[in-house]
């Protein structure tokens, strides 16, 4: 059946298909573009709601949207509240599709995180750091292997915030140090400032702020 169809002579519709269609990115025409920039893999935005009456702990983590193009990312970023205005005890996370931003997820349970913590709500400086962190993850410039980084997260807490990069392992030392250095550079931190790596296993045993540091850069 297939072959018979393929043998048919050129028809009017074939001719139309062969006509040149002007290819336009969003830079050529904001309203009427027909090409978009794919990402290496789909990413999911999660929002951890602050404790809410009537919701169990495991109901607070909300899967907002999965996307796989640069244009979609900006549609999200331009239409969502800024990270610095997150309510206390809430998070934004961008994780690989299929990975929940939780220690218990099979992709995370042997992993760890690089974290930068600072006092206050962060303001514009935090919004900029969060944006560049997310862009480095989805643009694949944060992880030289493409295997380690599972996601990035901002935790807003009482009196401080924390930005973190979650990795699949906590043993792949050379690669993890590379990622830590890239993260520090992306955050544009002064050399005197350090960021620390801890294993999820240690964090889950001792509470997120008390985990022992396995590496720092």
């Amino acid at each position: 059946m297939q072959t018979e169809q393929q043998k048919e002579p050129q028809t009017a519709s074939n001719a139309v298909e062969n006509q040149e269609v002007a290819l336009k990115t969003v830079f050529d025409d904001k309203l009427n573009f027909n090409l978009k920039h794919p990402l290496s893999r789909p990413w999911t935005l999660w929002f951890l709601m602050p404790p809410t009456p009537g919701l169990e702990w495991n109901e607070l983590q909300k899967n907002i949207i999965t996307f796989n193009s640069v244009e979609e990312f900006w549609g999200i970023h331009n239409n969502i509240n800024a990270a610095s205005s997150l309510p206390i005890k809430s998070d934004y996370s961008f994780f690989r599709e299929g990975v929940r931003p939780e220690w218990e997820d099979i992709h995370n349970k042997n992993g760890g995180k690089w974290a930068f913590q600072n006092k206050g709500r962060g303001g514009n400086a935090l919004d900029e750091m969060w944006l560049t962190t997310v862009l480095s993850a989805i643009g694949e410039t944060l992880d030289p292997t493409g295997e380690e980084v599972m996601g990035v997260v901002i935790n807003m807490r009482k009196g401080f915030y924390r930005l973190a990069v979650w990795t699949k392992t906590c043993t792949n030392r050379e690669v993890l140090l590379d990622i830590g250095n890239r993260f520090k550079q992306i955050l544009n931190l002064p050399r005197t400032e350090t960021i620390e790596f801890s294993a999820h296993e240690d964090s889950s045993k001792s509470g997120s702020t008390r985990a022992k540091t396995r590496m720092s850069v």
Partner: peptide
């Protein structure tokens, strides 16, 4: 346009 665009 976003929903209908082709992937580069």
């Amino acid at each position: 346009s976003l929903l209908q665009a082709s992937i580069i």
